[in-house]
């Protein structure tokens, strides 16, 4: 496969309080076999050698599982290909000569730290509010004393695969975190182990979500469409049911 030449328009911002702007870079020699983050690392290598400032962005696992990476690519969180994180997005999805616009998540609750790096600690706060089952180490019963319907367990698993990347918030015009919260609430709501605290959990997590300044959900489904882990909208419906039960 032929190497590509790209024009990259990348958001550069010194820190949270500075104003950012787009900077354009011409990048030659991009292999279609690179992943998107490898392409950016390749750009940075060149920038550093030229004495320019590299682009700050986050990445760690390169397997779509840690949730570190994430940026708007041509207007889409994690890029235009469904079901992929930025680190798994292959450059073979792009064309020679293409201009690619790259921006950080834009949401009030995710302030920019530098360039493409944003502060997602609001997600940790929501988790701390109630995203757990309060069983202390040592207190657990033998695992098979809690039978769980395979179907419920599978559904709980499907909800539990959220990587906390924030693409759902970034995709939403209201910057709502409902998909993220619904994934955690659903996982526990579907398991018998999670039932004892179900009411407090959903109330506390929703309250914290509001406190962190996330917007409200208007059911447009942009989050589901952009979620790299394909967390489903029906989790939000379940969250709403759980919430009403908890009032």
């Amino acid at each position: 496969m032929q190497n590509m030449k790209l024009k990259l328009k990348i958001w550069k911002q010194r820190d949270a309080s500075s104003r950012g702007r787009f900077v354009t870079y011409d990048l030659d020699g991009v292999s279609p076999e690179m992943s998107f983050v490898e392409m950016l690392a390749y750009l940075n290598e060149k920038l550093v050698l030229k004495g320019d400032e590299p682009v700050t962005f986050e990445h760690d696992c390169h397997e779509g599982i840690c949730g570190s990476c994430g940026m708007y690519i041509n207007g889409y969180p994690h890029g235009p290909v469904k079901g992929l994180t930025t680190c798994l997005l292959s450059m073979r999805y792009f064309k020679d000569g293409e201009t690619i616009v790259i921006e950080p998540w834009r949401a009030k609750s995710f302030p920019v730290i530098k360039d493409l790096m944003v502060d997602r600690s609001a997600f940790d706060k929501i988790q701390q509010a109630g995203g757990f089952i309060s069983v202390a180490v040592g207190a657990a019963p033998e695992a098979n004393t809690i039978p769980v319907r395979k179907h419920s367990s599978d559904l709980a698993f499907d909800a539990s695969v959220c990587i906390g990347c924030g693409a759902c918030v970034a995709a939403c015009k209201n910057a709502s975190a409902m998909l993220f919260v619904s994934a955690k609430v659903s996982q526990y709501a579907l398991l018998p182990q999670g039932r004892p605290e179900a009411k407090e959990r959903v109330r506390d997590m929703i309250a914290e979500m509001d406190k962190q300044g996330f917007g409200s959900c208007s059911n447009t489904g942009a989050c589901e469409a952009q979620c790299p882990k394909q967390i489903k909208l029906f989790n939000i419906a379940r969250l709403n049911r759980e919430y009403i039960k908890a009032l």
Binding site: F132, I133, V135, V137, G138, A139, A140, P141, E142, A143, I146, V148, K150, S153, D154, A156, F157, S160, Q187, Y188, L191, Q193, G194
Partner: peptide, 12 residues
């Protein structure tokens, strides 16, 4: 036992 009690969805 512990992971199951805190809601880790192991295969069933």
């Amino acid at each position: 036992d512990h992971f199951t009690a805190i809601g880790v969805p192991f295969a069933r």
